[in-house]
Write a protein that binds this DNA or RNA. Structure first.
Lengths: 347, 347
DNA sequence: GTGAAAGCGCTAACAA
DNA sequence: TTGTTAGCGCTTTCAC
């Protein structure tokens, strides 16, 4: 038994050692039933003895199937996306697939480059909130199955979070607390979810007779919290509805530092219910994201397993960052850390 | 231009259309310089016009190189590991590689299965705190390059966090605050870092004349915080040193719920400095982990780029969860949520 | 039930 | 500089 041999054991080695043709060895290993029980057992024994492991590249060349899916994400740092990765990875593993990770860093060009680079390597794409223009996306996905999260694209199967329901609950909650003016702290311009959230929030605010303003866009990171809160406050709102939890938590930190009481003077809500929302100060009222389910559902769409209702539920979690609107709206006080960047008027 | 054609454009199509041999087309595309400028330009033009994208599976079969690295992680949920993923992904991308993600869910068998499944697919493995026995690990990596984080394995290149320095700083910090008895809240039994942390903590405590006890093991998740804190407190310690931030934050939540003041009655420290440590209550004194650098360094080890000092620095970040030892050690009070699980005595 | 041979798309000898 | 050909390891017709 030559243990230091550099070359790997191939199916030829197995066939020779077993005294059968390679085709027979192949069948015995991967298509049992089309070979006599006796040879099957023999070949299998030889393969095990030799430590044969099929070369998956070679398997993939004729079949075109690798057992790999590519997961394309805007930002691997975002804990929200991490939940999705987890769901996708679990479901993929269950289907015998592995995941190739591609971080597009919120950049449309990098995103498209990933699609091209990985196209021949994977059995399909999982696109999370893709940022690239629809036509380019579709052009790149001509010959490859894909499933999409939070971005309806004509012809591509996908799932979305129930943004409308989430917005309805947030607005109803704030309206119930007596808020009459809310500000939406926007996320990335190219995010479908941002557009939806803004649109539905405005709509529901209108129904409740609440004034609505959107400010931003802001990068969906902790650091955006301070400028976003400043801009939101400048609108005279008593409630700040952030695009996601990162911005919301950042806002909370900024407000605490500025000595503005939450929820006493201003209420804050987030979205996604990421790690940290339960133990920040105050614990954040937010809206859950079906990230993990989305991950599973997307893989399901690719493997044909899951029927999947395309709109995944999202629900409000009331914690301590929201409270009754102050009797009279707060007035600017204390040093503004920086002048608010020109707020964009909401619809 | 037949747009609905299912078959992809191959290099044969390009060669035929350009009126050259396939080898010439291949060279023009991937080995320019060994072909006349004129043909190179022509072939390239044709390839672009036809929308040719090389089939990477086919490229990989003869060469054995896929441009893929497998990243094997104990738990994709852990924000600490996410930082490492990020570093690895960035460095891999810079080297023109992509990452295949494999979550072993803290299970040695799953870990080894991943190695086997992905072996022929990847140019190398990045093993993060592998849990499987050393001999099995080495057996599975006979013919594949690998780099390891936080687990010295004979013959395999790798990097580790400077656990000793971290422990020294934590103990010195606590000693300086007057603590005379500390408890270590252990992590997973199969974790090298846990063993190291425990060993070095005990050692440094000894030097400072501080009593040291280890309790556990505990799973490195938020939920372990409560039982771990309970067990730690039962030792009479005035400072709880947790294996990682998740356990520490969980402990913080438990202590707050039990009405035990931090750091008034007991100090708490974590490790890794994950997302959330800066805004939990109180903000956590912890020790940084070189996770991102580790990710980069591991990829470097595989690509031959980085020389890399194998021990990566780690430093103490003092926040508000540590303070002067109480004048007299606290006595049990309030309802214990559950009896402490039998604490393991430290060395 | 089993074997011989072709072919997946590409690169690298080897020739010319 | 360019063309011809073999071969990477496997599966899959097609014969027998």
């Amino acid at each position: 038994m030559d243990h230091s041999r550099p070359r790997a054991v191939t199916i030829y080695d197995v066939a020779r050692e077993a005294g059968v043709a390679t085709s027979t060895a192949s069948r015995a290993l991967s298509n049992p039933g089309r070979v006599s029980e006796r040879t099957r057992a023999h070949v299998e024994e030889v393969a095990a003895r030799l430590g044969y492991v099929p070369n998956r590249i070679a398997q993939a060349l004729p079949s075109g199937r690798t057992g790999l899916f590519a997961l394309v994400i805007p930002d691997i740092t975002n804990p929200h996306h991490v939940r999705l990765i987890r769901g996708a990875q679990a479901q993929a593993a269950a289907a015998g697939h592995s995941l190739v990770l591609a971080d597009s860093q919120e950049d449309a060009d990098i995103e498209l480059a990933h699609l091209q680079r990985l196209a021949s390597f994977v059995d399909g794409f999982l696109l999370v909130s893709p940022r690239a223009p629809a036509d380019e996306l579709l052009a790149h996905l001509q010959r490859h199955p894909a499933a999409v999260f939070n971005r309806p694209l004509a012809g591509l199967p996908g799932v979305v979070a129930d943004v409308d329901a989430a917005s309805a609950q947030v607005v109803a909650h704030l309206a119930g607390l007596g808020h009459r003016r809310i500000a939406y702290l926007r996320g990335p311009e190219t995010s479908w979810a941002d557009g939806e959230r803004r649109r539905t929030l405005a709509e529901h605010a209108g129904r409740h007779g609440i004034a609505f303003t959107a400010v931003g866009p802001f990068a969906p990171v902790l650091e955006s919290g301070a400028p976003a809160a400043t801009a939101g406050l400048a609108t005279g709102a008593t409630a700040l509805v952030a695009f996601n939890d990162l911005i919301a938590i950042g806002a909370l930190e900024h407000l605490a530092a500025a000595g503005i009481a939450v929820p006493g003077e201003v209420s804050v809500t987030g979205a996604d219910d990421v790690f940290g929302t339960s133990f920040c100060r105050p614990p954040l009222t937010t809206v859950t994201s079906p990230a993990q389910e989305a991950g599973r559902a997307m893989v399901g769409l690719l493997t044909g397993t899951e029927p999947a209702d395309p709109v995944l539920p999202s629900r409000l979690i009331v914690r301590e960052s929201t409270g009754p609107a102050p009797v009279r709206p707060r007035r600017a006080r204390g040093p503004a850390t920086r002048p608010p960047s020109a707020p964009t008027a909401g619809s």
